[in-house]
Simulated assay, not measured.
Amino acid sequence: MRDTEICRKLLQLEEPWTVDRVKVDVQARELHAYLVAGKSWFGRPSLVRPKMRWRHANVGAFKTFIHATLPDNREQQQGPSFLGQVDRDFTHGLAQRVVECLKAGLGYRQVCNLLEIDVYLAWQIRHALGEGQLSAEEQPLDHNPEASSSRQIPPTGDPVWFRLLESEESIDIHLLGLRLLLARCRQEFPALSSNDAKIMRVNTVRRFFIKHEKQLDHEISQLLELKRASQAGAES
């Protein structure tokens, strides 16, 4: 059986997609699959260079990368697990694996180690989850409190989180755990040089709000008031 056919079966490709060629780097433990929509010309490799590259879930012990060009009329929000969105570095399949690990109770660093993905890629997936930008199949824990709480708690990209962590905004905190977490994050925040690192701290605080939402009515109401005040100040 040809290597392209083996790869097609491993990736569980759906028509009209097929594997045009495969590149395996044994030393780096990387598998690169080049996909085309339709059969290659007389069995020869296509001369068209794929426009997108996504990190996929590992195939065996090999880090897997998918190279493909999406048709112009393709619906980007939905798609087979072996493809991704144009503006993302990960496939739907990898995002789903991350969600499954989170459902099992793993933390993001544990997910990175298990799936062999770097922190930056994990942050992309984490950010997409927090913003509700993934498809319904990729969203985590429909029966988990996080699913409904994110509708009230501001998303990761909301400036209110930066305002909360960059200054000593006075909000009355009843829950000791949140008080300690905010004190630590506020101490670390000014020393963080990259925006990605700051977003990671924001996510830490936001996930605490989500996890303990039922105990944080008092604090959440103040957070939302802080958000409204910020919006009013920006508009005036």
Rank of each mutant, 00 (worst) to 15 (best):
R126K: 14
D158Q: 12
Q76I: 02
V48W: 02
S193L: 15
E146L: 05
G60E: 06
D142S: 01
L106W: 11
L31A: 02
L180V: 12
Q152H: 10
Q77I: 13
E14I: 00
C185F: 07
G177A: 13
R228M: 01
S81L: 00
S193Q: 15
N195Y: 13
T69A: 00
E235F: 07
L102P: 06
L121Q: 01
L176E: 08
L134W: 06
K103W: 10
D172N: 13
H174G: 15
D217Y: 05
E137N: 15
E219N: 04
R29G: 01
L180T: 13
L121M: 13
R97G: 10
H67I: 02
G60R: 14
Q85F: 05
L182Q: 09
L192P: 03
A234S: 09
A28W: 10
K214C: 09
W17Q: 03
D3L: 11
R184S: 15
D87G: 02
Q139E: 02
I220E: 05
A37Y: 03
L102C: 11
I6D: 06
A128F: 00
L11R: 00
A128L: 10
L223F: 10
R228Y: 09
I199W: 11
R179M: 11
H92S: 05
L10K: 05
Q139T: 15
R49P: 03
V111A: 08
